[in-house]
Design a protein around this nucleic acid. Structure first.
Length: 530
DNA sequence: TTAGGGTTAG
């Protein structure tokens, strides 16, 4: 009888479950708990709570079922209260509480529960790792994963996925490879969820070949896996390849979803395929089950604007059936920056200010626009405003993985690295070589560079250049130098990278905030279109 | 009868 009751609950047939419950001649803790769990899993928290209050005895499981209901509904305060009132704290309840704290960004609270637990299971560890990962405590996530392995606890699915996500974010390819090896040992390479995370890890670490190999080997693929590969090629600026996968996907009979279209349109945008992009967008509007949303319009604004059709992009915004959000205005602003369209840039920046008053980008752009159009007073007002308010202006940093360690560089502070002496020497040597080949740093990127990494020293100390210099010193000949940057690469550094790759005959793979640049032989895979 | 999973545009 209780089994049937929970069967109804799991199928969401709560009313029938309740009838059965009321009809039961004998009810025990288990059946009461099943009913509570049914209500709380289906969002009927008040009913669950009523039963919980009147039930004759409560087991640990009843408490936990009630707790999980609150957490899943996002009522973290109620959950916390209940948790504190519990006579005992079973592992399942602690784990659930940690997940709840993690989802609400309360990492310290999750950690406090974690540390107080006498008994931990694999779920405890993965809940802690996930809380760190989702709140961008990436180093803590890694060390917790290490700690877990040292204690001989085998990784489980959620922890493997979390840790792959961390590897993707930090672009630590070698660590990611080790996780891949561990996956093979645990047969997690058969699981579609972890394999998708694995593909994304290889893509975000800049190793497309490996991503492609894993992708090709896995059958049957689901839509997410196809999407991972399409967006991966898009990020690397490989438009043809992305469209090829999209085509294969259609042949395989897999229906695209909204994210597929984001990936394909981005691929077109990054590679200047305006015609194909338009066709795909039109066919999506006409005969697809997926209606284009704000995210697709933003891809189109980006596609048109990037290609120089800034007016058309603005028209599209004016005529589209959805409300323009910050992302759309941001895409338009980016296009104006690229094509130096001060007039529309001002409009876009002002719209953006209304929607996101806390971000520094639009203010910085506006000040550049005012400067370049001779509106000195407006420009200085804007600059004062930027410095007077504590706006979200992240400092630029770049990093490189070497010898199982992440080496971090920031623009102003090269002395922070223990090996700064040889790095500085290398930077100076590069300067000499760049000069010889006719390179000169110019200031024509003012309108171009919105992220404005603080230029405390001269341009050559930008963080990405420090990281590349370090890579040149350490990464063995013949291996590509993989550098990551948290912001968009600056135009000046982009030009320098092309030359550095040529002069030193090295391949440099740079991941910036948006996409990848593969520098080789004096050229970049983005063909300066980024 | 209790928790825990992947992809996304600027």
């Amino acid at each position: 009888r209780t089994a049937m009751l929970s069967g109804y609950c799991q199928a969401g047939r709560i009313a029938e479950a309740r009838l059965l419950f009321d009809d039961m001649p004998k009810r025990n803790v288990v059946s009461w708990t099943a009913m509570i769990s049914g209500y709380s899993q289906n969002g009927k928290l008040n009913l669950a709570r009523k039963l919980f209050e009147v039930m004759p005895d409560r087991s640990e499981v009843s408490w936990t079922a009630m707790l999980v209901g609150y957490i899943q509904a996002g009522h973290i305060e109620d959950a916390e209260q209940l948790f504190n009132a519990m006579p005992e704290h079973p592992v399942a309840a602690c784990n659930a509480m940690m997940v709840g704290f993690g989802q609400r960004g309360m990492v310290d609270a999750a950690k406090a529960v974690f540390e107080r637990m006498q008994e931990k299971d694999d779920g405890t560890w993965s809940a802690m790792i996930k809380a760190y990962e989702q709140n961008e405590f990436l180093i803590e996530a890694l060390s917790t994963f290490r700690d877990m392995s040292w204690r001989g606890i085998r990784p489980n699915y959620p922890s493997v996925i979390s840790i792959l996500t961390v590897c993707s974010a930090l672009a630590i390819l070698n660590y990611g490879r080790e996780v891949h090896a561990a996956m093979l040992r645990c047969s997690f390479d058969m699981d579609i969820f972890t394999v998708s995370a694995l593909i994304t890890m290889y893509i975000k670490c800049g190793n497309l070949d490996k991503a492609n190999r894993v992708f090709n080997m896995f059958e049957p693929k689901d839509v997410v896996m196809w999407n991972s590969m399409i967006t991966g090629y898009a990020q690397h600026g490989l438009g043809e390849e992305a469209l090829g996968i999209f085509n294969d996907m259609t042949i395989a009979g897999m229906a695209p979803d909204g994210i597929t279209y984001i990936g394909v349109l981005t691929a077109c945008s990054y590679t200047g395929k305006v015609k194909v992009g338009r066709e795909i967008f039109n066919s999506m509007c006409k005969n697809s089950a997926i209606r284009p949303g704000a995210e697709h319009y933003s891809c189109m604004v980006d596609l048109l604007g990037r290609a120089g059709h800034v007016d058309e992009a603005l028209d599209l915004i004016k005529n589209m059936p959805v409300e323009a959000d910050a992302i759309i205005w941001g895409a338009l602003m980016g296009a104006c920056r690229m094509h130096k369209n001060a007039e529309i840039a001002e409009l876009a920046a002002k719209k953006l200010l209304e929607l996101e008053p806390e971000s520094a980008g639009p203010y910085v752009l506006l000040s550049h626009i005012y400067t370049s159009t001779g509106r000195w007073e407006d420009a200085s007002k804007m600059r004062k405003f930027i410095s007077s308010r504590n706006l979200n202006k992240s400092t630029g940093c770049s990093w490189i993985e070497y010898d199982k360690r992440v080496h971090l560089f920031t623009s102003g502070d090269i002395l922070a690295h223990p090996e700064h002496a040889i790095i500085l020497k290398m930077l100076e040597k590069l300067d000499g070589l760049l000069m010889e080949s006719g390179y000169s740093a110019d200031g024509s990127f003012v309108l171009h560079d919105i992220d404005e990494e603080q230029k405390l020293h001269s341009l050559r100390y930008h963080s990405e250049r420090q990281a590349v210099a370090y890579g040149l010193l350490k990464v063995p000949e013949g291996m590509p130098i993989r550098v990551m940057k948290n912001l968009r690469v600056c135009g000046d550094c982009h030009a320098a990278m092309k030359l550095i790759a040529k002069i030193t005959s090295r391949e440099i793979i740079l991941r910036d905030a948006n996409r990848f640049h593969h520098f080789k032989d004096g050229f970049c895979s983005c063909r300066d279109y980024w």
